[in-house]
């Protein structure tokens, strides 16, 4: 599927990052169009999280370009990238344990420019608590939340900044089947809001349900790209996953 440059939210070209002798991301390139959900798949250790870390500025690339809405952000400090409209969640969920749910979400929006008026910020926090299913928990310390609620809170914090691009690193991992259904619906509703999403995921049913397109990585390289159904039946992809994670979770 070809993308008009004007509608590309994220464009990655020739991205590379090595840790010592290990090339975790090797010549990676792809583009994500406005409102699209792009799946980023691959066996354990194939470089998915590293790719997200490079895009969000946790790590600086050795080479390559990363364009967020046309602007090269490669090597930019992560707080600047965040202010340009990128938000993310983490593979190992990270919430602010010493703060309550309301403050956690506030952290997501308080440092975006221009600053929101206080009343508007409070309204947005209420709406987000409601949206991720944490209504009524606003004064609850994040440390007391269950695993899924921590994930919800982390997502709400990411959404608080009204991001253009959202990077989700296995946000659906570890959920039970009914939680998974709720989670998938939630992500689908984000797409309906026009948020562009890069979804790193091992849960294949979720990938099928959500992703417009997918790329598959193996040992740092992109080995397949295309419409989700095509990619998942690709022989090279099936082979890369053999002995890795189960093809369906």
């Amino acid at each position: 599927m070809s993308q008009d440059t004007a509608t590309r939210v994220l464009e990655v070209e020739g991205l590379r990052r090595a840790f010592g002798g290990l090339v975790a991301v090797n010549d990676l390139g792809f583009a994500v169009g406005q409102g699209e959900i792009m799946g980023l798949l691959g066996p354990n250790g194939s470089g998915k999280t590293t790719a997200l870390n490079l895009i969000s500025g946790v790590l600086h690339p050795d080479a390559g370009a990363i364009r967020l809405m046309g602007r090269n952000i490669a090597g930019l400090a992560s707080y600047r990238i965040a202010r340009l409209g990128l938000a993310r969640t983490f593979q190992l969920v990270r919430v602010l344990d010493g703060m309550d749910c309301r403050e956690n979400i506030k952290a997501g929006l308080a440092f975006q420019k221009p600053h929101l008026p206080a009343a508007e910020a409070e309204d947005r926090i209420d709406a987000l608590l409601d949206r991720v299913g944490l209504a009524g928990h606003d004064r609850r310390p994040a440390a007391d939340l269950t695993y899924i609620d921590r994930k919800r809170l982390e997502l709400a914090r990411a959404l608080a900044a009204k991001p253009q691009l959202l990077l989700l690193d296995e946000w659906l991992a570890g959920l039970n089947p009914s939680e998974l259904t709720i989670g998938i619906e939630l992500i689908r509703s984000l797409k309906a809001d026009g948020i562009t999403i890069v979804l790193v995921e091992h849960v294949m049913s979720a990938v099928r349900a959500l992703c417009d397109r997918c790329i598959v990585m193996s040992s740092g390289r992109k080995i397949a790209e295309g419409a989700t159904a095509d990619v998942l039946s690709d022989a090279a992809v099936v082979k890369a996953y053999l002995g890795g994670v189960a093809a369906d979770a």
Partner: peptide, 8 residues
């Protein structure tokens, strides 16, 4: 890390 991703 979270702080940075919040734009701080």
């Amino acid at each position: 890390t979270v702080a940075k991703h919040c734009g701080i």
